[in-house]
Design a protein around this nucleic acid. Structure first.
Lengths: 179, 179
DNA sequence: TCGTCTCAGTTCAGTGATTGAACCAACCGT
DNA sequence: ACGGTTGGTTCAATCACTGAACTGAGACGA
């Protein structure tokens, strides 16, 4: 998504950010990565994204330093958030919050809690019990009051993603789950 | 941008948010609206967006309740942020912040200040002088250390946008400026 | 009244991106 | 040797975006 605008335009951090995470699917891939998805096939089935597009998006996310591509012990490919990727959490959080407050009258679809003391995390990213700023790996995400559970059969990855779990905790499926 | 995914997928506030503000150009339009741009022609020239796309985007933003389309005293069309639109500020802010911290080593391109006491506004949206949460209309945006001023001639709207100014304060140009 | 200007769009052919489905090459365990 | 898993690639059809020209309504001045 090249936006070849005026120089003044280029002088905008938002434009630069959107060149990286502004394309279709990209932020959903990043969100899945926060949920612990790491494998090509898991992104593909969970998001329903065409594999060719997924290839392209992963490539730019790696090039821009948001994800790293590496192989695990068994030689399977893993895409993991870098520090720069984890720094996108406030963006994902802000969008989720806006989506909830604008379009989910029954309450938030996902609640965020401080894993240590179970405190709800507010819009300021502080735990309502201990008052601390909660670092991303200590955040637990779980179904909130606005969540409507699905009756349909889910693939293993979607199944894992609706369970309460800490962010960044890897979801392990398929061959890797045997080991 | 319809994302017809699984039911579990639809159960995600991020997906819903991206359906509204996830399309190309949309968030840039919203940012311009925060800067005080209100008129069709001003969006078009400032962003360099094709007018047909601008028409489509403004239409969905109005339909989704992010902008209102109304006519001013002189009968000119104005697009203004609604409360729901203003609630997008944390999203824009988080993206700008990520863009700055990832890609602007010389410092932020735009600094945000509390207009009342001139205090810098931190990542938590609090004024570093008075400690208050600063409401959007009281935020002043101005060039930061990472801003590289342009030598080129700018259109009047871009010119106005690089001056320090409060958010939401309308930029008035053209025929409306005579009145 | 005429011509010109501003403003907010519409129209349309050309180009580029996305989609969905099929295909492919390694590798693994048996 | 074989089927399953994994991480892709390929390709035609569709869809969205682009840029430039055009339209129509109202304002303005002569």
């Amino acid at each position: 998504m090249v936006l070849p605008n005026t120089y003044a335009e280029r002088n905008c951090s938002l434009t630069r950010a959107l060149e990286v995470v502004g394309e279709r699917w990209t932020l959903l891939i990043v969100r899945d990565a926060f949920h612990g998805v790491r494998r090509f096939g898991d992104f593909a089935t969970q998001l329903g994204i065409p594999r060719a597009v997924l290839t392209a998006r992963l490539k730019t996310l790696v090039r821009e330093g948001v994800l790293v591509r590496e192989e695990d012990a068994a030689g399977l490919v893993e895409y993991k958030l870098t520090d720069r990727g984890i720094a996108l959490w406030p963006v994902v959080r802000a969008m989720m919050h806006w989506g909830d407050e604008s379009y989910s009258p029954a309450g938030v679809k996902r609640a965020l809690r401080h894993d240590a003391d179970n405190g709800l995390i507010g819009a300021d990213n502080k735990c309502q019990i201990c008052g601390e700023l909660v670092p991303v790996p200590d955040i637990r995400i779980e179904a909130g009051p606005g969540f409507a559970p699905s009756a349909a059969e889910l693939d293993p990855v979607s199944e894992a993603m609706i369970q309460p779990r800490r962010l960044l905790e890897p979801i392990v499926t398929g061959r890797a789950a045997q080991a």
